[in-house]
Design a protein around this nucleic acid. Structure first.
Length: 443
RNA sequence: GUGGCCUUAGCUCAACCGGCAGAGCAUUGGAUUGUGGAUCCAAAGGUUAUGGGUUCGACCCCCAUAGGCCACCCCA
């Protein structure tokens, strides 16, 4: 029979990897909770127009990467899986009148996003993002808060050397004039532009700035920089943000070529990365200010800022960084110790599944992580498998049961002793709590 | 969406010039009927990614498709 496989660009997160993503989400939750960001869950799909209007018709994300859903019945609607969370959250903000809440509304969500582009390492058609949004505050102090939060996440999750790129891409007051100047500049150099770059000049001139084509380096270096063309308000915003970051002691790098791929961004543009990495998936996360988005989706004019951090790329970077040092902190994610049971209940009598199941049930009721070996293998095999699972203890059911006792074997130490069945939970708790504190301190 | 490289057991990899597809790890079972974590033995696991073609004969050569990776495009 023909077998199935996960769709192209998607993958299964098996227990070790799934536990790791769960850990990322838990760190994100703890962090955002401390900062006062509250969880929000919006649908994984929306009317396609939410993205088309919010993100922009001529962006790559909408033009060629939107994961469209063909409905079963023709009801005139067109749907799409979310390529990023901001547009959906903005839609929810408008729909539920969150402008009547105390501003800004601080929101966070973590979940899968979908983009139909060509897969590569660190780039998937279904990928995970930790997302943070602050809606209703024009900044720039809130911009600084968000950036600091993002860097804090990388630190807590264990990524070393995460840094942030910063730029301002202006607003409707100053960007048009800048774009005119930019286009004029490149028109003067049109003869020396590669074909793909010439195409960009018509479609998305800002993109020219961060071209990777070496031939463009010289031309780009002399190109007009948007930071020199900002209107008064945008310039003050950027200066204010920098002052706040400095005051917080948050380092950043100004990157005049930093441009965002989505139309809704204004002023602050940010991108997180780790310096010195090989390969192309350099962006670990990105975001920025979107002061026009809420209005685009039919709400009152409302400022906002947010970012999304790619969890698949966090995992990628952690793997890269773990290769160098053999401390193996991340090796845990491969599936051993973290989810190892406190005890496995085994039996001298291979037929006695009832006794094992009952004992394990009692231990669980007492709050222990206990697994019964429910096979019909002989004792030696049961112990072997318990040891491989990383269990701390084995509870051995045997003839001693007639005296109300079992053998409690410490699989780590290799020692064992007789324990009364009634005392089992207490003895196990004593033995395992010590053990847990020990491993936590070392990590 | 464009170009290049790759695909043999669950995993990592062998198989000469085209001549009957193998190993390690993992899994399962056994080794004088109650004791594991580097003991020994064995089993199971493959339409060599899929579909065609060339050939007496194809894992090996050719074509197409799928998937992965790399570089673009772009981004997380």
């Amino acid at each position: 029979m023909r077998t199935f496989r996960a769709p192209r660009g998607t993958r299964d997160l098996l227990p070790g990897e799934a536990a790791r993503f769960l850990r990322f989400a838990e760190i994100a939750r703890g962090l955002t909770d401390r900062y006062g960001y509250r969880p929000i869950e919006t649908p994984l799909f929306e009317q396609a127009a939410v993205f088309e209007r919010g993100i922009g018709e001529v962006t790559d994300v909408v033009e060629k990467e939107l994961f469209r859903i063909v409905p079963r019945t023709e009801d005139g609607e067109s749907w799409a899986l979310r390529p990023e969370p901001t547009a959906g959250i903005a839609r929810a903000y408008v729909q539920h009148g969150l402008r009547t809440w105390p501003q800004p509304v601080r929101l966070t969500t973590t979940g899968p996003m979908f983009r139909y582009d060509r897969p590569q390492a660190g780039r998937y058609r279904q990928f995970w993002q930790f997302d943070v949004e602050a809606i209703g505050d024009a900044g720039p102090a809130i911009d600084a808060e968000i950036i600091e939060l993002g860097l804090r996440f990388y630190a807590e999750v264990g990524v070393k050397g995460a840094e942030v790129l910063l730029n301002s891409i202006g607003d409707p007051a100053c960007r048009p004039a800048y774009l005119d100047a930019l286009v004029a500049y490149y028109r003067d150099h049109a003869a020396s532009l590669p074909p793909t770059e010439r195409d960009r000049l018509e479609r998305n001139p800002l993109r020219l700035l961060d071209s990777k084509d070496p031939a463009m380096a010289a031309i780009n270096a002399a190109a007009p920089r948007i930071v020199d063309h900002l209107c008064q308000a945008c310039a003050e915003h950027l200066a204010g943000l920098r002052a706040h970051l400095d005051a917080l002691g948050v380092g950043y790098r100004l990157e005049p070529g930093l441009v965002r791929g989505l139309d809704y961004y204004t002023r602050t543009a940010i991108e997180f990365y780790v310096a010195g990495r090989e390969g192309q998936q350099q962006a670990l996360g990105g975001g920025g200010r979107y002061d026009g988005l809420i209005e685009l989706l039919g709400g009152q004019p409302t400022p906002g800022i947010g970012f999304g951090l790619g969890l698949d790329r966090v995992a990628l970077v952690l793997d890269e960084q773990a290769e160098g040092d053999p401390s193996g902190a991340e090796a845990d994610a491969a599936g051993g110790p973290p989810d190892a049971p406190d005890a496995v209940v085994v039996s001298a009598d291979p037929a006695d599944t009832v006794g094992r199941l009952r004992t394990a049930t009692e231990l669980r009721a007492a709050g222990l992580r206990a697994r019964a070996d429910l096979g019909h293998r002989k004792l030696g095999r049961q112990l072997e498998s318990a040891g491989r699972d990383g269990a701390h203890f084995a509870v051995i059911l045997g003839d001693e049961l007639t005296d109300g006792q079992v053998q409690l074997r410490d699989l780590k130490a290799g020692s064992q002793r007789l324990v009364g069945v009634a005392d089992l939970p207490r003895e196990l708790k004593r033995g395992t709590s010590q053990h847990r504190h020990g491993t936590r301190d070392s990590s």
